[in-house]
């Protein structure tokens, strides 16, 4: 399915408005001074079409920060599984880095035993991607992680070609959704050419941002598990947990029970959790298997660059740059990889 359509920019507002009457539409909007966040919108002009990644990635729609997975009644006692039937939602403005994040989560949650809650939500989500014609900022490493160009994970994919969006269809559902709004026309050769030019220009703009080659990343990380780089990072990290919460491919969670004030009924919820948090690897007896912050950071990196290769055949880093951008201590992904790469050489 490689069908190209065009949406005129003048129709963009009407397109979003029409869509939002049919279902929920979420898109990046300005949040505060320097940031953006995916939020529900009803108008196209509320959307920020900037390339800077949002504070949280769109994973929050697939796996919300808090989600009920069960209800219980202590009096019986009985547990009922809850697999929410969420409303249909379109997520507009998902950049290629985040598309690759969603693809990774799909692989993890679709691996048996499958995560019913995640998959039920996914079934009701339509993803509309949006190309970055230029870098968001210097923290991104999407070229190095090969995520700067679209390669699936979307129902529709938008590229800004000036006075219009070139729209690539990625699924039958995406195509139907576009056709139903009535704003899309088939792309002509002139528009095709404009897209080609943008991609050519991107080749010049986007350069490998990290000093280790894609194919060598795993080996570098496997060779440097005992590196002093981890000690150094450990001494700088404050374990605020920002890096894992904002990561598009972090999916660790905690399971907690909440009881109502009648002390009888309640629910079991899952809440995002992260390996940087103090209590994450503690067992009931009190032993903490990753007591040092350096060990926790190493674990986070290994989960991006070493372990998933074996399990899912891909890296779990999308190059979005969020972890570096949000780090209180300015621990930089690019610098870390560079330092490890240098060490692996010797």
């Amino acid at each position: 399915m490689n069908h190209y359509m065009v949406l005129k920019k003048k129709d963009f507002n009407a397109f979003i408005e029409k869509l939002s009457k049919k279902m929920k539409v979420a898109a990046p909007v300005r949040k505060g001074v320097k940031n953006f966040a995916f939020e529900e919108v009803t108008r196209g002009d509320a959307i920020s079409r900037v390339s800077l990644p949002t504070i949280l990635p769109p994973k929050k729609y697939f796996m919300p920060q808090r989600e009920t997975i069960q209800t219980f009644d202590r009096a019986v006692p009985r547990w009922n599984s809850v697999v929410s039937e969420n409303d249909a939602i379109v997520i507009f403005g998902v950049h290629t880095c985040d598309l690759s994040g969603i693809q990774f989560l799909n692989a993890v949650m679709g691996t048996p035993p499958k995560d019913a809650n995640y998959l039920a939500r996914k079934a009701n989500i339509t993803v509309i991607g949006l190309e970055c014609n230029d870098y968001c900022d210097a923290y991104a490493s999407c070229k190095a992680m090969k995520t700067h160009l679209p390669s699936g994970g979307y129902d529709l994919f938008f590229t800004d070609i000036g006075d219009a969006f070139m729209v690539q269809t990625g699924s039958a559902a995406g195509e139907t959704l576009a056709q139903e709004t009535g704003f899309f026309t088939t792309a002509d050769t002139g528009e095709q050419k404009k897209l080609g030019n943008i991609r050519k220009k991107k080749e010049k703009i986007f350069k490998d941002e990290i000093s280790v080659k894609y194919a060598n990343l795993r080996t570098v990380f496997e060779k440097t598990v005992q590196s002093e780089v981890w000690e150094d990072i450990g001494s700088r990290c404050v374990a605020c947990g920002n890096c894992t919460n904002v990561c598009p491919t972090c999916y660790c969670f905690d399971i907690q029970d909440e009881i109502d004030l009648n002390l009888r009924t309640g629910r079991r919820v899952r809440v995002w959790d992260g390996c940087q948090n103090e209590e994450f690897a503690k067992v009931a007896g009190g032993e903490n298997f990753r007591r040092k912050r350096g060990q926790r950071q190493r674990h986070r990196y290994m989960r991006k660059f070493a372990y998933p290769m074996e399990k899912y055949g891909t890296y779990a880093c999308t190059g979005c740059g969020r972890c570096t951008r949000t780090c209180m201590a300015k621990i930089s992904l690019k610098e870390t990889i560079h330092a490890l790469g240098e060490e692996a050489k010797s």
Binding site: R78, V83, E85
Partner: peptide
């Protein structure tokens, strides 16, 4: 549209 998958969190009453 909901995937009719069994939740892996299903609990049996013992």
């Amino acid at each position: 549209m909901t995937a009719l998958l069994e939740s892996p969190y299903e609990v049996m009453a013992g």
